[in-house]
Design a protein around this nucleic acid. Structure first.
Lengths: 168, 168
DNA sequence: CAGAAATCATCTACCGTCAAACAATCTCCG
DNA sequence: CGGAGATTGTTTGACGGTAGATGATTTCTG
């Protein structure tokens, strides 16, 4: 092995061939597979948000529960699950944690003793206000690659995919 | 539990139509939380695709592996993992299944015996062609809510989020 | 050349989600 | 009234994905 050009790495042996194409195949993939592009983008956004929120007092689902309770009043876990698109069995632990932190109360629904009436406490309102305040810059960071118009377009398209009628 | 203290009443104790706001809270949520809209849309799309592909010979990740091998030639599992954004440990099982079905071969890379050279077999090429043919209508169904222009826009925005340069 | 550090594939432990089963309760209908 | 079926919250088990450690091999550094 005196004069043979030492291939520095497996992927780019000689720099002249398809190494570039191979290392950038993901870009080509996203053109063929919108579902994969969407999925990977969602993962990237969620990861960015979770990183910034790690160590904070609320997880994303917990924040969403407080937010909905503030918007529509006391709710059963079933209603929270349906509207937030969180599975019922996951909602159990979510409300458990919020109740343990004193941010919501679980009261029995007066007319349907199967269901709870999950209610926001004053502490919960305060925690929600703080979480809402902290959320804007986190979202701005996660969507920093998009202009405000593009971000609005993305929301419009995802709403169409979810069969949500356009905003009034 | 004879005389429990009377809990606060629900937000909509008697009015039947007050549920309108409560039953449609998800629409309001998507306006505040683009990350949630994106996440739920991705789940909906993935679920629609998985449903149509269930029973088929290839899963989505397996299809992606064959597709990349056909596009760039033999690859190490590491390269497949990086470009397809699939974790290395998951790629193991993915290639295992493809090898078991005879669609790829695992050969040791001649210059780096740590790595495999995963190679498409003739059967793999045939399976890929069939899967590619079956994919178009599945994607059309999953993205049926969007016009072709909107679908292209969605791809463009997700590519920006993933920091992929615009297509040539 | 020898040892340190990095890399590739793999394995294992862990976490979060989903489907199914369950008890308690409500609604419907004869 | 009373039983069948649906609904609410919960638990359980299976599944998929991720992080960290491991063994084999390569590359780097002195």
């Amino acid at each position: 092995m005196a004069t043979a050009p030492r291939p520095a790495r497996l992927a780019s042996p000689s720099r002249a061939d398809d190494g570039g194409e191979r290392r950038r195949y993901f870009a080509a993939l996203t053109l063929d597979r919108p579902d994969v592009a969407l999925c990977r983008a969602t993962t990237a956004v969620a990861r960015a948000i979770d990183e910034q929120l790690s160590g904070g007092p609320l997880t994303v689902p917990q924040h969403l529960v407080l937010k909905m309770l503030a918007a529509v009043g006391s709710c059963s876990q079933q209603e929270l699950s349906e509207q937030l698109r969180i599975d019922r069995s996951v909602m159990v632990g979510c409300v458990d944690a919020l109740e343990g932190a004193g941010l919501v109360r679980r009261e029995r629904h007066p007319r349907d003793r199967r269901a709870y009436a999950v209610t926001l406490t004053p502490d919960g309102s305060a925690a929600l206000a703080a979480a809402d305040r902290a959320m804007a810059p986190v979202l701005d960071h996660a969507f920093a690659a998009l202009t405000p118009d593009e971000r609005a377009t993305l929301v419009r398209l995802t709403r169409k995919l979810l069969d949500v009628p356009p905003a009034d």
